[in-house]
Write a protein that binds this DNA or RNA. Structure first.
Lengths: 196, 196
DNA sequence: TCTATTTTAAAACAAACAATCTAAAATTTT
DNA sequence: AAAATTTTAGATTGTTTGTTTTAAAATAGA
Protein backbone atom coordinates (compact mmCIF):
# COMPACT_ATOMS: atom_id res chain seq x y z
CA UNK A 1 0.00 0.00 0.00
CA UNK A 2 1.64 3.23 -1.12
CA UNK A 3 1.49 6.58 0.57
CA UNK A 4 -1.61 8.28 1.85
CA UNK A 5 -3.24 11.38 0.46
CA UNK A 6 -1.42 14.49 1.58
CA UNK A 7 -4.57 16.59 1.75
CA UNK A 8 -7.73 16.44 3.79
CA UNK A 9 -10.56 15.30 1.57
CA UNK A 10 -13.32 17.15 3.38
CA UNK A 11 -11.32 20.33 3.47
CA UNK A 12 -10.66 20.08 -0.25
CA UNK A 13 -14.30 19.39 -1.06
CA UNK A 14 -15.33 22.41 0.97
CA UNK A 15 -13.03 24.57 -1.12
CA UNK A 16 -14.25 22.98 -4.33
CA UNK A 17 -17.91 23.44 -3.39
CA UNK A 18 -17.20 27.05 -2.64
CA UNK A 19 -15.56 27.92 -5.93
CA UNK A 20 -18.37 26.18 -7.82
CA UNK A 21 -20.82 28.16 -5.74
CA UNK A 22 -19.08 31.38 -6.60
CA UNK A 23 -18.47 30.94 -10.32
CA UNK A 24 -20.86 28.18 -11.38
CA UNK A 25 -19.90 24.96 -13.11
CA UNK A 26 -19.14 26.21 -16.61
CA UNK A 27 -17.15 29.27 -15.61
CA UNK A 28 -14.97 27.30 -13.20
CA UNK A 29 -11.85 25.98 -14.92
CA UNK A 30 -9.63 23.14 -13.80
CA UNK A 31 -7.01 25.79 -13.25
CA UNK A 32 -9.36 27.49 -10.79
CA UNK A 33 -9.78 24.21 -8.98
CA UNK A 34 -6.01 23.78 -8.81
CA UNK A 35 -5.56 27.27 -7.45
CA UNK A 36 -8.18 27.10 -4.69
CA UNK A 37 -7.32 23.60 -3.55
CA UNK A 38 -3.57 23.94 -3.91
CA UNK A 39 -3.52 20.61 -5.74
CA UNK A 40 -2.63 19.89 -9.33
CA UNK A 41 -5.01 18.46 -11.89
CA UNK A 42 -3.23 15.13 -11.66
CA UNK A 43 -4.07 14.80 -8.00
CA UNK A 44 -7.63 15.94 -8.49
CA UNK A 45 -8.26 13.53 -11.32
CA UNK A 46 -6.66 10.73 -9.42
CA UNK A 47 -8.79 11.23 -6.34
CA UNK A 48 -12.11 12.35 -7.71
CA UNK A 49 -12.23 11.72 -11.46
CA UNK A 50 -12.84 14.63 -13.80
CA UNK A 51 -14.35 18.05 -13.39
CA UNK A 52 -17.85 16.73 -13.78
CA UNK A 53 -17.44 13.98 -11.20
CA UNK A 54 -15.89 16.47 -8.83
CA UNK A 55 -18.88 18.72 -9.23
CA UNK A 56 -21.34 15.97 -8.40
CA UNK A 57 -19.29 14.96 -5.35
CA UNK A 58 -19.16 18.59 -4.27
CA UNK A 59 -22.93 18.90 -4.39
CA UNK A 60 -23.32 15.79 -2.26
CA UNK A 61 -20.82 17.24 0.18
CA UNK A 62 -22.70 20.51 0.24
CA UNK A 63 -25.96 18.76 1.06
CA UNK A 64 -24.54 16.58 3.79
CA UNK A 65 -22.42 19.25 5.41
CA UNK A 66 -23.29 22.84 4.64
CA UNK A 67 -27.05 22.46 4.30
CA UNK A 68 -27.48 20.02 7.15
CA UNK A 69 -25.26 22.14 9.33
CA UNK A 70 -27.28 25.26 8.68
CA UNK A 71 -30.51 23.43 9.40
CA UNK A 72 -29.09 22.06 12.60
CA UNK A 73 -27.69 25.36 13.81
CA UNK A 74 -30.49 27.72 12.92
CA UNK A 75 -33.52 25.47 13.21
CA UNK A 76 -33.24 22.23 15.14
CA UNK A 77 -30.95 23.57 17.84
CA UNK A 78 -32.75 26.89 18.25
CA UNK A 79 -34.36 27.46 21.62
CA UNK A 80 -36.90 29.77 20.07
CA UNK A 81 -38.14 28.03 16.87
CA UNK A 82 -39.80 31.09 15.35
CA UNK A 83 -36.76 33.28 15.87
CA UNK A 84 -34.55 30.50 14.57
CA UNK A 85 -36.53 30.43 11.36
CA UNK A 86 -36.23 34.17 10.91
CA UNK A 87 -32.54 34.12 11.72
CA UNK A 88 -31.97 31.51 9.04
CA UNK A 89 -33.54 33.74 6.42
CA UNK A 90 -31.73 36.83 7.61
CA UNK A 91 -28.45 34.96 7.45
CA UNK A 92 -28.87 34.70 3.68
CA UNK A 93 -28.41 38.43 3.40
CA UNK A 94 -25.15 38.69 5.29
CA UNK A 95 -22.66 36.17 4.07
CA UNK A 96 -19.52 36.07 6.19
CA UNK A 97 -17.06 36.88 3.43
CA UNK A 98 -18.99 39.82 2.08
CA UNK A 99 -19.44 38.15 -1.27
CA UNK A 100 -22.88 37.32 -2.54
CA UNK A 101 -22.57 33.78 -3.73
CA UNK A 102 -26.02 32.58 -2.79
CA UNK A 103 -26.55 28.85 -2.48
CA UNK A 104 -24.94 26.07 -4.51
CA UNK A 105 -28.29 24.30 -4.84
CA UNK A 106 -30.06 27.36 -6.16
CA UNK A 107 -27.25 28.25 -8.51
CA UNK A 108 -27.02 24.73 -9.88
CA UNK A 109 -30.76 24.36 -10.30
CA UNK A 110 -30.72 27.45 -12.47
CA UNK A 111 -27.49 26.81 -14.38
CA UNK A 112 -28.55 23.38 -15.58
CA UNK A 113 -32.20 23.12 -16.36
CA UNK A 114 -33.44 19.57 -16.58
CA UNK A 115 -30.49 18.60 -18.75
CA UNK A 116 -28.33 16.87 -16.16
CA UNK A 117 -30.55 14.31 -14.56
CA UNK A 118 -28.34 13.18 -11.71
CA UNK A 119 -27.69 16.66 -10.41
CA UNK A 120 -31.46 17.12 -10.49
CA UNK A 121 -31.72 14.25 -8.08
CA UNK A 122 -29.14 15.71 -5.69
CA UNK A 123 -30.89 19.05 -5.92
CA UNK A 124 -34.21 17.49 -5.03
CA UNK A 125 -32.54 15.91 -2.02
CA UNK A 126 -31.21 19.27 -0.87
CA UNK A 127 -34.49 21.08 -1.41
CA UNK A 128 -36.37 18.34 0.40
CA UNK A 129 -33.95 18.60 3.30
CA UNK A 130 -34.81 22.27 3.65
CA UNK A 131 -38.52 21.78 3.16
CA UNK A 132 -38.69 19.00 5.75
CA UNK A 133 -36.78 21.13 8.25
CA UNK A 134 -39.20 24.01 7.65
CA UNK A 135 -42.10 21.68 8.32
CA UNK A 136 -40.58 20.39 11.56
CA UNK A 137 -39.99 23.93 12.69
CA UNK A 138 -43.55 24.99 11.97
CA UNK A 139 -44.81 22.13 14.11
CA UNK A 140 -42.44 23.16 16.88
CA UNK A 141 -43.77 26.71 16.65
CA UNK A 142 -47.29 25.40 17.14
CA UNK A 143 -46.24 23.29 20.11
CA UNK A 144 -44.64 26.31 21.74
CA UNK A 145 -47.79 28.32 21.16
CA UNK A 146 -45.93 30.82 18.97
CA UNK A 147 -48.43 30.41 16.18
CA UNK A 148 -51.94 29.00 15.89
CA UNK A 149 -52.30 25.43 14.67
CA UNK A 150 -51.54 25.58 10.99
CA UNK A 151 -54.02 24.02 8.52
CA UNK A 152 -51.20 22.60 6.42
CA UNK A 153 -47.63 22.66 7.72
CA UNK A 154 -46.58 20.85 4.57
CA UNK A 155 -47.92 23.51 2.27
CA UNK A 156 -46.49 26.29 4.42
CA UNK A 157 -43.10 24.58 4.27
CA UNK A 158 -43.18 24.54 0.47
CA UNK A 159 -44.09 28.21 0.46
CA UNK A 160 -41.14 28.95 2.68
CA UNK A 161 -38.91 27.00 0.31
CA UNK A 162 -40.08 29.11 -2.62
CA UNK A 163 -39.59 32.29 -0.61
CA UNK A 164 -36.13 31.09 0.37
CA UNK A 165 -35.15 30.47 -3.24
CA UNK A 166 -36.55 33.78 -4.37
CA UNK A 167 -34.45 35.65 -1.85
CA UNK A 168 -31.36 33.80 -3.00
CA UNK A 169 -31.92 34.93 -6.57
CA UNK A 170 -31.99 38.58 -5.58
CA UNK A 171 -29.09 38.14 -3.19
CA UNK A 172 -27.01 36.55 -5.88
CA UNK A 173 -27.59 39.53 -8.15
CA UNK A 174 -26.71 41.90 -5.33
CA UNK A 175 -30.15 43.54 -5.47
CA UNK A 176 -32.59 44.88 -2.90
CA UNK A 177 -30.89 43.71 0.27
CA UNK A 178 -32.42 46.42 2.39
CA UNK A 179 -35.94 45.79 1.16
CA UNK A 180 -35.67 42.07 1.69
CA UNK A 181 -34.32 42.59 5.17
CA UNK A 182 -37.51 44.35 6.11
CA UNK A 183 -39.80 41.87 4.43
CA UNK A 184 -38.53 38.62 5.92
CA UNK A 185 -40.20 38.84 9.31
CA UNK A 186 -43.55 39.84 7.88
CA UNK A 187 -43.55 37.18 5.21
CA UNK A 188 -42.68 34.40 7.62
CA UNK A 189 -45.35 35.56 10.03
CA UNK A 190 -47.80 35.64 7.15
CA UNK A 191 -47.02 32.17 5.87
CA UNK A 192 -47.09 30.78 9.37
CA UNK A 193 -50.48 32.37 9.94
CA UNK A 194 -49.68 34.78 12.75
CA UNK A 195 -52.30 37.45 13.20
CA UNK A 196 -51.42 40.84 14.55
CA UNK B 1 -24.21 52.41 -49.38
CA UNK B 2 -23.89 48.67 -49.82
CA UNK B 3 -26.54 46.04 -49.37
CA UNK B 4 -28.90 45.71 -46.44
CA UNK B 5 -28.94 42.99 -43.81
CA UNK B 6 -30.59 39.84 -45.12
CA UNK B 7 -32.07 38.90 -41.75
CA UNK B 8 -34.58 40.48 -39.43
CA UNK B 9 -32.78 41.88 -36.41
CA UNK B 10 -35.62 41.45 -33.95
CA UNK B 11 -36.26 37.91 -35.11
CA UNK B 12 -32.59 37.07 -34.66
CA UNK B 13 -32.40 38.63 -31.22
CA UNK B 14 -35.45 36.64 -30.14
CA UNK B 15 -33.68 33.44 -31.15
CA UNK B 16 -30.48 34.54 -29.44
CA UNK B 17 -32.27 35.46 -26.23
CA UNK B 18 -33.94 32.08 -26.26
CA UNK B 19 -30.80 30.01 -26.60
CA UNK B 20 -29.12 32.04 -23.85
CA UNK B 21 -32.20 31.46 -21.74
CA UNK B 22 -32.02 27.74 -22.33
CA UNK B 23 -28.30 27.11 -21.89
CA UNK B 24 -27.00 30.13 -20.04
CA UNK B 25 -24.18 32.41 -21.15
CA UNK B 26 -21.16 30.18 -20.55
CA UNK B 27 -22.62 26.98 -21.97
CA UNK B 28 -23.77 28.70 -25.15
CA UNK B 29 -21.09 28.55 -27.85
CA UNK B 30 -20.79 30.73 -30.91
CA UNK B 31 -21.55 27.59 -32.87
CA UNK B 32 -24.85 27.34 -31.01
CA UNK B 33 -25.60 30.92 -31.93
CA UNK B 34 -24.80 30.21 -35.57
CA UNK B 35 -27.05 27.16 -35.58
CA UNK B 36 -30.09 28.79 -33.99
CA UNK B 37 -29.89 32.01 -35.95
CA UNK B 38 -28.86 30.46 -39.25
CA UNK B 39 -26.14 33.08 -39.54
CA UNK B 40 -22.39 32.64 -39.49
CA UNK B 41 -20.12 34.10 -36.87
CA UNK B 42 -18.90 36.67 -39.37
CA UNK B 43 -22.37 38.10 -39.76
CA UNK B 44 -23.06 38.02 -36.05
CA UNK B 45 -19.82 39.78 -35.21
CA UNK B 46 -20.38 42.32 -37.92
CA UNK B 47 -23.84 43.24 -36.71
CA UNK B 48 -23.61 42.92 -32.95
CA UNK B 49 -19.98 42.62 -31.91
CA UNK B 50 -18.85 39.56 -29.96
CA UNK B 51 -20.59 36.98 -27.86
CA UNK B 52 -20.59 39.20 -24.81
CA UNK B 53 -22.03 42.20 -26.60
CA UNK B 54 -24.66 39.98 -28.16
CA UNK B 55 -25.64 38.73 -24.72
CA UNK B 56 -26.08 42.22 -23.34
CA UNK B 57 -28.13 43.23 -26.36
CA UNK B 58 -30.24 40.10 -25.95
CA UNK B 59 -31.05 40.97 -22.34
CA UNK B 60 -32.13 44.45 -23.34
CA UNK B 61 -34.30 42.93 -26.04
CA UNK B 62 -35.77 40.50 -23.54
CA UNK B 63 -36.70 43.30 -21.17
CA UNK B 64 -38.25 45.52 -23.79
CA UNK B 65 -40.11 42.80 -25.60
CA UNK B 66 -40.68 39.57 -23.72
CA UNK B 67 -41.06 41.00 -20.22
CA UNK B 68 -43.03 44.06 -21.24
CA UNK B 69 -45.25 41.94 -23.45
CA UNK B 70 -46.04 39.52 -20.65
CA UNK B 71 -46.83 42.37 -18.29
CA UNK B 72 -49.08 43.96 -20.85
CA UNK B 73 -50.92 40.77 -21.73
CA UNK B 74 -51.41 39.25 -18.32
CA UNK B 75 -51.64 42.32 -16.13
CA UNK B 76 -52.37 45.67 -17.71
CA UNK B 77 -54.81 44.36 -20.30
CA UNK B 78 -56.59 41.95 -17.98
CA UNK B 79 -60.25 42.72 -17.33
CA UNK B 80 -60.05 41.01 -13.97
CA UNK B 81 -56.82 42.22 -12.32
CA UNK B 82 -56.71 39.56 -9.59
CA UNK B 83 -57.21 36.72 -12.06
CA UNK B 84 -54.68 38.30 -14.38
CA UNK B 85 -52.10 38.23 -11.63
CA UNK B 86 -52.77 34.59 -10.89
CA UNK B 87 -52.72 33.69 -14.56
CA UNK B 88 -49.31 35.28 -14.93
CA UNK B 89 -47.89 33.10 -12.18
CA UNK B 90 -49.58 29.97 -13.48
CA UNK B 91 -48.13 30.64 -16.91
CA UNK B 92 -44.66 30.13 -15.48
CA UNK B 93 -45.46 26.48 -14.94
CA UNK B 94 -46.59 25.68 -18.44
CA UNK B 95 -44.14 26.94 -20.98
CA UNK B 96 -45.40 26.54 -24.53
CA UNK B 97 -42.57 24.37 -25.83
CA UNK B 98 -42.64 21.93 -22.95
CA UNK B 99 -39.11 22.86 -21.94
CA UNK B 100 -38.43 24.39 -18.58
CA UNK B 101 -36.16 27.28 -19.36
CA UNK B 102 -37.39 29.67 -16.72
CA UNK B 103 -36.66 33.34 -17.22
CA UNK B 104 -33.58 34.95 -18.76
CA UNK B 105 -33.42 37.52 -15.98
CA UNK B 106 -33.54 34.93 -13.23
CA UNK B 107 -31.03 32.70 -14.93
CA UNK B 108 -28.62 35.54 -15.58
CA UNK B 109 -28.92 36.95 -12.07
CA UNK B 110 -27.86 33.57 -10.75
CA UNK B 111 -25.19 32.72 -13.33
CA UNK B 112 -23.26 35.93 -12.79
CA UNK B 113 -23.22 37.12 -9.23
CA UNK B 114 -22.17 40.70 -8.86
CA UNK B 115 -19.23 40.18 -11.20
CA UNK B 116 -20.67 41.73 -14.34
CA UNK B 117 -21.84 45.13 -13.34
CA UNK B 118 -23.62 46.17 -16.51
CA UNK B 119 -25.78 43.08 -16.69
CA UNK B 120 -26.67 43.77 -13.06
CA UNK B 121 -28.06 47.08 -14.20
CA UNK B 122 -30.18 45.52 -16.96
CA UNK B 123 -31.37 42.92 -14.48
CA UNK B 124 -32.45 45.58 -12.03
CA UNK B 125 -34.38 47.23 -14.83
CA UNK B 126 -36.19 43.99 -15.61
CA UNK B 127 -36.95 43.21 -11.99
CA UNK B 128 -38.19 46.74 -11.42
CA UNK B 129 -40.43 46.44 -14.45
CA UNK B 130 -42.08 43.41 -12.89
CA UNK B 131 -42.28 44.90 -9.42
CA UNK B 132 -43.85 48.12 -10.68
CA UNK B 133 -46.40 46.15 -12.67
CA UNK B 134 -47.26 44.11 -9.58
CA UNK B 135 -47.79 47.29 -7.63
CA UNK B 136 -50.06 48.78 -10.30
CA UNK B 137 -52.07 45.60 -10.34
CA UNK B 138 -52.50 45.55 -6.56
CA UNK B 139 -53.87 49.08 -6.71
CA UNK B 140 -56.24 48.04 -9.47
CA UNK B 141 -57.42 45.13 -7.32
CA UNK B 142 -58.22 47.53 -4.50
CA UNK B 143 -60.09 49.85 -6.85
CA UNK B 144 -62.20 46.96 -8.07
CA UNK B 145 -62.94 45.93 -4.51
CA UNK B 146 -61.29 42.54 -5.03
CA UNK B 147 -59.10 43.04 -1.99
CA UNK B 148 -59.13 45.35 1.00
CA UNK B 149 -56.98 48.47 0.86
CA UNK B 150 -53.47 47.24 1.26
CA UNK B 151 -51.23 48.84 3.92
CA UNK B 152 -48.24 48.79 1.58
CA UNK B 153 -48.70 47.96 -2.10
CA UNK B 154 -45.00 48.56 -2.58
CA UNK B 155 -43.98 45.96 -0.03
CA UNK B 156 -46.51 43.48 -1.34
CA UNK B 157 -45.12 43.97 -4.83
CA UNK B 158 -41.62 43.15 -3.66
CA UNK B 159 -42.92 40.04 -1.96
CA UNK B 160 -44.59 38.96 -5.17
CA UNK B 161 -41.32 39.53 -7.00
CA UNK B 162 -39.50 37.25 -4.56
CA UNK B 163 -42.23 34.64 -4.85
CA UNK B 164 -42.03 34.91 -8.63
CA UNK B 165 -38.28 34.34 -8.64
CA UNK B 166 -38.56 31.45 -6.23
CA UNK B 167 -41.02 29.67 -8.47
CA UNK B 168 -38.73 30.16 -11.44
CA UNK B 169 -35.88 28.45 -9.60
CA UNK B 170 -37.94 25.34 -8.96
CA UNK B 171 -39.41 25.40 -12.46
CA UNK B 172 -35.97 25.59 -13.98
CA UNK B 173 -34.91 22.49 -12.05
CA UNK B 174 -38.06 20.69 -13.14
CA UNK B 175 -39.17 20.22 -9.54
CA UNK B 176 -42.52 20.34 -7.71
CA UNK B 177 -44.71 21.65 -10.49
CA UNK B 178 -47.86 20.11 -9.06
CA UNK B 179 -47.27 21.49 -5.58
CA UNK B 180 -46.53 24.97 -6.85
CA UNK B 181 -49.64 24.89 -9.02
CA UNK B 182 -51.73 24.46 -5.89
CA UNK B 183 -49.90 27.06 -3.87
CA UNK B 184 -50.00 30.01 -6.25
CA UNK B 185 -53.57 31.13 -5.65
CA UNK B 186 -53.28 30.88 -1.88
CA UNK B 187 -49.98 32.71 -1.73
CA UNK B 188 -51.18 35.58 -3.90
CA UNK B 189 -54.35 35.90 -1.84
CA UNK B 190 -52.22 35.90 1.29
CA UNK B 191 -49.79 38.55 0.11
CA UNK B 192 -52.62 40.68 -1.17
CA UNK B 193 -54.36 40.37 2.18
CA UNK B 194 -57.53 38.55 1.19
CA UNK B 195 -59.31 36.99 4.14
CA UNK B 196 -61.41 33.87 3.75
C1' DT C 1 -24.70 50.19 -66.05
C1' DC C 2 -21.18 51.32 -63.10
C1' DT C 3 -19.10 52.06 -58.77
C1' DA C 4 -18.77 52.08 -54.02
C1' DT C 5 -19.72 49.83 -49.92
C1' DT C 6 -21.56 46.21 -47.25
C1' DT C 7 -22.84 41.57 -46.18
C1' DT C 8 -21.75 37.03 -46.40
C1' DA C 9 -19.52 32.41 -46.17
C1' DA C 10 -15.64 29.76 -45.24
C1' DA C 11 -11.23 29.21 -43.74
C1' DA C 12 -7.79 30.24 -40.39
C1' DC C 13 -6.22 31.98 -35.97
C1' DA C 14 -4.26 31.89 -31.33
C1' DA C 15 -5.69 31.02 -26.83
C1' DA C 16 -7.88 28.28 -23.39
C1' DC C 17 -9.86 24.19 -22.29
C1' DA C 18 -10.35 19.42 -19.95
C1' DA C 19 -7.86 15.46 -19.74
C1' DT C 20 -3.82 12.29 -19.87
C1' DC C 21 0.82 10.71 -19.52
C1' DT C 22 5.33 10.29 -17.49
C1' DA C 23 8.79 9.98 -14.35
C1' DA C 24 10.15 11.14 -9.85
C1' DA C 25 9.10 11.46 -4.98
C1' DA C 26 6.96 9.62 -0.98
C1' DT C 27 5.58 6.28 2.37
C1' DT C 28 3.32 2.19 3.66
C1' DT C 29 4.00 -2.73 4.33
C1' DT C 30 6.92 -6.58 4.61
C1' DA D 1 16.22 -1.58 4.72
C1' DA D 2 13.92 -3.26 0.63
C1' DA D 3 10.11 -3.68 -2.21
C1' DA D 4 5.71 -2.48 -3.64
C1' DT D 5 2.39 0.83 -4.59
C1' DT D 6 0.49 5.32 -4.65
C1' DT D 7 0.63 10.24 -4.90
C1' DT D 8 2.45 14.03 -6.97
C1' DA D 9 4.13 17.73 -10.18
C1' DG D 10 4.92 19.09 -14.66
C1' DA D 11 4.72 18.57 -19.38
C1' DT D 12 1.74 17.43 -23.14
C1' DT D 13 -2.24 15.94 -25.53
C1' DG D 14 -6.05 16.82 -28.90
C1' DT D 15 -10.32 19.67 -28.76
C1' DT D 16 -12.97 23.36 -28.45
C1' DT D 17 -13.30 27.99 -27.65
C1' DG D 18 -14.14 33.01 -29.29
C1' DT D 19 -12.46 35.86 -32.75
C1' DT D 20 -10.44 37.60 -37.11
C1' DT D 21 -9.29 37.50 -41.85
C1' DT D 22 -10.11 36.67 -46.58
C1' DA D 23 -12.23 36.89 -50.89
C1' DA D 24 -16.44 36.53 -53.27
C1' DA D 25 -21.28 37.83 -53.70
C1' DA D 26 -24.85 41.22 -53.29
C1' DT D 27 -27.03 45.56 -53.70
C1' DA D 28 -27.88 50.46 -52.84
C1' DG D 29 -27.06 54.91 -54.96
C1' DA D 30 -25.31 57.70 -58.87
Amino acid sequence: MGRNLSFDEKETLAKVANIFREKGYEATTVKDLEKTTGLTSGSLYNSFGGKEALFDIAIGFYNNNVVRNRISTFLDQADDPLSGMKNLFHSLLNEPDGQENGCLLTNTAVEFNNRRRHTTQELDTGFSLLEAAFKRQIIRCVERGQIAKHPSPQQAATRLLIFYQGILVLVRAGLRRKEIEQIINDEIDLILGRRF
